[in-house]
Design a protein around this nucleic acid. Structure first.
Length: 689
RNA sequence: GCCCGGAUGGCGGAACUGGUAGACGCAAGGGACUUAAAAUCCCUUGGCACAAUGUGCCGUGCGAGUUCGAUCCUCGCUCCGGGCACCA
């Protein structure tokens, strides 16, 4: 924190903050969900308060461009981060005020519409209002309006779209591009927190300005002519915000609107009243919390020397352990003299320790770095170890962290890199966002009270079955509507595995440690092949996609094959060694998901060392190879027949076989073969006419 | 309004990212074993039609297109889920 403070990445400011009445604390923008607290769902109000901030905005551009390189992340999360950072490029333009030496500065993404500006709108909190209002002649009306908007904003919820309204400020501004004087309005839809808190209004090409102009009878001037249709000022029903050719725009008329953006900005830059600018929606991260629990912010407020970091020799600042929570609206540390009373490290005079603590998300933004060197005590990070382990190969978490933890961690990683603590840019290479479990139409959660207690199911079927069932239900990234209908099937499957082992116990024990015979019978070869195909499938599913559901179904298939070949009725029995190999494989592959039963059966078949110590099997490419495959035969793309053929059968031979097929001939009668497509190992398509 | 996902049998879900749609499981129906039930095992199971144990047609939200061939690619829609939102 102190290093960040020294670099200007941590700072104090007084601003409007999000306040949660229930938690009695400030929240970051990212922690306000639908206008409510992320922890307790209490509706958030706003307050003016001093607090500590991290300058995440300095990294806005890098966090945004870095998104493109997050190849192992779900598209959805990347999009959410992009939207949250929300970059817009445009220009900053100064409009001088009439009869004043002040300027009104706006940010716009549409400098191409500069000649269509017919008024200006400023936020009710805009500092210039203090100067303008007294000269307006209706000062009272202005302040009434400002108060009204503030009240309305407090009462409304963020998702409500309020009616556009405003009041004339009495002032006029000059459009520096054409010298025209335009009225300045104070409008409820302009936000002080974004851009400059002032907007140039182009009603013909911006929907909000259009609505506002309609309400107050302000002029509409078309300056961008669309290519397909003609616009008329008096017949417009909505603003046209698409591209086109500039008209009524002085020397820029006739220009394409896209190229006019740069041309107009450059013109203004040359004349000194405009500048190209990029704006982000991302705000600095407010980390001050008025909670007792949380890492103390290591700062001291001295009445004479100002803010001073706690000297490093006095770190860490330790929280008192004898604190009782109260509901005073302030952190209990705030009232604890023993904690806050201290001396200034600079002048030695009486000073006050910072009593705010850090947001929990601060620690979670770099805990994974600390995990690489937990026994290191000479600093935050042991670089060698961090270099060795990081970035995290595979990260798993809920999508609810998309713009909280996952963005903060990306920010922190870069900060630590720039402070020399890390050599990486991104913390997490691959990200899996697991889906939510839905119950009765809502996310299953403790606070919603719709949690299914697994205990009941476990006591009935056992933990192994419940584990298997949970994994079998759906792939992990998918939301899942909870339904316990299928659990019976998983239970049956495990019982089948159990029976399979118990019934063949002696045979399995007898073949323990034996090598596979060189020459296998057909049934043995088939079983051996299926075993290795299953190892391959399960390994890929578990290691690369986490699709446990298909991994389990593959083991079920192997089990089906095995019980099919072990029956007394089937003519040929596979060799005991191949059976043993199949059974061992089933147990090993299943063991991460069904640990108890597998371990037990592992011992039953005569193993002396535990299954947990057995290495994951590798598959034999040769063994997994098919000897005979089914080739589909299509006529004009429709499946008409199937033939069995050797894997390495020649194309010519396959074509011959296909054309000799009775079913196929039926569809070729009296027709001519135009083309033959052969997909090796898959199908033959005969195109006839 | 803008931006991401998604849509496959009665259900959960498969299908090497262009190559036999419906793996695996659930549910349902039929049968075997049993005095009976449970358990277990076997068979059937996308829809429609018929000369009916086979064969044909249709079928992956809807409509077009590209292709020898489309659940997969392209364009235009519909619905569902999620994110952002007076962002200038």
């Amino acid at each position: 924190f102190i290093r960040m403070y020294e670099k200007g990445l941590a700072y104090v400011k007084k601003t409007t903050v999000n306040w949660c009445e229930t938690c009695q604390t400030v929240l970051a923008n990212e922690q306000v969900i639908d206008g409510c607290c992320w922890r307790c769902d209490q509706q958030i109000s706003s307050r003016q308060m001093q607090g500590w901030f991290f300058r995440i905005t300095s990294y806005a551009e890098e966090l945004l461009t870095g998104c493109a390189r997050l190849e192992g992340w779900p598209e959805k999360v990347i999009t959410m981060q992009r939207n949250w950072i929300n970059k817009s490029t445009g220009a900053r333009i100064d409009f001088p005020l009439v009869d004043s030496d002040r300027k009104l500065t706006v940010f716009t993404t549409r400098p191409d519409t500069i000649f269509g500006v017919t008024f200006m709108s400023v936020a009710p909190e805009h500092p210039l209002i203090k100067e303008i209002a007294p000269r307006s002649g209706n000062e009272q009306k202005i302040w009434d309006f400002v108060a009204e908007v503030q009240l309305e904003r407090q009462r409304s919820r963020p998702e409500d779209e309020l009616d556009k309204k405003g009041v004339f400020s009495g002032a006029y501004a000059v459009n520096p591009y054409n010298g025209l004087q335009i009225p300045v309005y104070i409008a409820n839809f302009v936000l002080m927190e974004y851009g400059t808190g002032a907007v140039m209004a182009v009603p013909a090409h911006d929907q909000r300005d259009f609505e506002f102009a309609g309400k107050y009878g302000l002029a509409i001037k078309i300056v961008v002519a669309p290519r397909e249709k003609e616009l008329k000022e008096d017949s417009m029903t909505e603003a046209y915000d698409g591209p086109g050719v500039l008209i009524n725009s002085g020397e820029f008329s006739g220009m394409d609107s896209e190229s006019a953006k740069t041309a107009i900005t450059e013109y203004g830059e040359k004349k000194g009243f405009a500048a190209a600018e990029t704006s982000y929606r991302l705000r600095d991260w407010g980390i001050s919390r008025q909670r007792y629990w949380g890492a103390p912010i290591p700062m001291i407020h001295c009445p004479d020397c100002g803010i001073q970091p706690v000297p490093e020799k006095d770190l860490p600042v330790i929280l008192p352990t004898d604190v009782r929570p109260d509901n005073s609206g302030k952190s209990s540390l705030h009232n604890l003299k023993e904690f806050y009373q201290t001396s200034c490290p600079l002048c030695g005079g009486e000073a006050r320790r910072e009593t705010d603590t850090m947001d929990t998300f601060v620690e979670s933004s770099w805990y994974f770095v600390r995990y690489t060197c937990p026994n290191f005590h000479n600093g935050p990070v042991e670089l060698d170890k961090a270099d060795y382990w990081l970035p995290v190969n595979q990260y798993i978490g809920g999508v609810e962290h998309a713009i909280l933890h996952l963005l903060y961690s990306r920010f922190f990683t870069r900060v630590m890199r720039d402070l020399g603590y890390l050599n990486i840019d991104e913390p997490f290479t691959n990200l899996l966002t697991q889906g939510m479990v839905i119950k009765d139409g809502a996310k299953m959660s403790k606070s919603k009270g719709n949690v299914v207690d697994p205990e009941e199911m476990i006591s009935h079927y056992g933990a192994d079955t419940v584990r298997l069932f949970s994994l079998f239900a759906a792939p992990p990234e998918k939301d899942l509507e909870w339904n316990d209908k299928g659990v019976e099937g998983c239970f049956r499957f495990l019982k089948r595995v159990h029976r399979l082992v118990m019934e063949n116990r002696e045979l399995l024990k007898g073949s323990a440690g034996n090598k596979l015979p060189g020459n296998l019978c057909k049934a043995g070869r088939n079983l051996h092949r299926k075993t290795h195909k299953t190892i391959k499938k399960v390994s890929v599913d578990l290691e690369t996609t986490f699709h446990f559901n298909t991994a389990i179904s593959a083991v079920m298939e192997l089990t089906n094959t095995l019980s099919g070949t072990c029956g007394e009725e089937s003519g040929e029995e596979p060799e005991a060694e191949t059976i043993r190999e199949a059974v061992e494989t089933i147990l090993v592959l299943l063991s991460p998901m069904v640990p108890h039963l597998c371990e037990e059966l592992w011992e039953t078949i005569g193993n002396t060392s535990p299954l947990t110590e057995k290495a994951w099997p590798s598959y034999d490419q040769e063994a997994a190879r098919e000897e005979e495959i089914t080739i589909a035969i299509q006529v004009n793309g429709k499946l008409r027949s199937q033939i069995k053929a050797k894997v390495d059968e020649k194309e010519e031979k396959l074509k011959e076989m296909a054309m000799a097929d009775v079913k196929v001939q039926k569809f070729m009668e009296g027709k001519e073969i135009k083309k033959t497509i052969v997909v090796p190992g898959k199908l033959i398509n005969l195109v006839v006419k």
